[in-house]
Design a protein around this nucleic acid. Sequence first.
DNA 1: ACTTGCCTTCCACTGAGCGGAAAGCGAGGC
DNA 2: GCCTCGCTTTCCGCTCAGTGGAAGGCAAGT
Lengths: 247, 247
Amino acid sequence: MGATVTSRVLDLLGAFDSDHRRLTLSDLARRAGLPLATAHRLVGELTRWGALTRLATGEYVIGRRLWDLGLLSPVQSGLRQAASPFLHDLYGATLATVHLAVRDGGEALYVDRLAGHVSVPVVSKIGSRLPLHATGVGKVLLAYAPEDVRTEALGRLTRVTPYTITQPALLTDQLRRVRTAGFATTGEEMSLGACSVAVPVRGEADRVVAALGIVVPDLRREQARLVSALQVAARGIGRTLASAQRN
Amino acid sequence: MGATVTSRVLDLLGAFDSDHRRLTLSDLARRAGLPLATAHRLVGELTRWGALTRLATGEYVIGRRLWDLGLLSPVQSGLRQAASPFLHDLYGATLATVHLAVRDGGEALYVDRLAGHVSVPVVSKIGSRLPLHATGVGKVLLAYAPEDVRTEALGRLTRVTPYTITQPALLTDQLRRVRTAGFATTGEEMSLGACSVAVPVRGEADRVVAALGIVVPDLRREQARLVSALQVAARGIGRTLASAQRN
DNA sequence: ACTTGCCTTCCACTGAGCGGAAAGCGAGGC
DNA sequence: GCCTCGCTTTCCGCTCAGTGGAAGGCAAGT
């Protein structure tokens, strides 16, 4: 059995997810697989430290101190921070939804997302994960991913909309074009009424570290302009990232 | 002595702060006040779970999983998420730096910040804390804070720039005006060349839960327009927050 | 008044955790 | 090459922090 105290504490924290943001003590104990008395003691200590907060209702939620800690993660303090002003510039120029994503295993992890009320509604949220084959940023990340990740991803091309690409050969071809052209596009492959363009963000040694994308209702007219805007921003992010490296 | 395993684990996590985002095992042990062998074991477990990540250099950083967890905090998933589109609308309309802050004890905690390259450069960062008396959002939060917090804050009005207000009587007067007018302003009180306007965000039962502010180089001409824009956005956030409450 | 589902406190047993010590592992310096 | 210095990793026997069943309290529903 995994009976270290640390693992129990982590199990308690792991009991929280996006569908379970508020949990009662009993729920926590159940989900973490711990006896109530044990959970009670550990949760108490976590709460005292600020890792959890207890609401007036008695439910527990993730505390401010953990939020703080998360901000220190390199995803946030490196990439996201470097990118932030560029994303806002992009948003200001286009008023479209802007996305910044990294590859997390076989999925695209959305590190940042800007959207106003004017923008096309999309499913993504900060911290959410979406399939690589059906999104603009995903295609970019996939195009530059290591061989094994790519073959693995091509093996399970789940259909999301009628326009989602589910034929491996077709996608392989597209990915090749992404690499030569330097940008990827999608047309209603993830959500109907939403098209996207995305470009790679290159860090040290020209390695692709992230993808930068934009979602618009229609692509035909604007594509060239959007690609240039994205590429300018991506370069800027890369440069900022490089100079921030040596702190 | 505080010798619970949980406290040791938390001490290790607490060893990270904005000036110490990457730590070697020895640093971690030192900062957490733990013997090396103990730190080694605990850090190993944290890393296996994903709370920490080990870089190629051997240093440890906060891991993606903790970043994820932080996103579940109510600050993020409630307030920030509700506010996000409004902040972007505001940014799109003004291209100025937009701030969303809550009161955390005697300081203003910046929950979100939008700034492009065009915007006035300012010190704040997401997750950073600034004094309540010298910023627009801070003054709003202070104006609506409980009595004891206010007197406590009035007791230590540290000077930041030549324009910072350091006389309790003057600030008290300003705060009264904030409550009647419904907005606060600053003029180079935190950083030279930066002025700000801020309004309260009201949640359930009209309680002030946050402050929404904007930073511009000069205030005189635009003030009225900015205040209305801010108030519209603040109302919108409040409404979104209320409807998200009952999920 | 009884039931059900929460939360909290208590306390005696015990094995998970402790940490000093020693060995490994590189990167400079000479 | 050899030595040193700072960091990391592994080992192992003692012991105290952690455990969790049990019992009690509290609030809401029937």
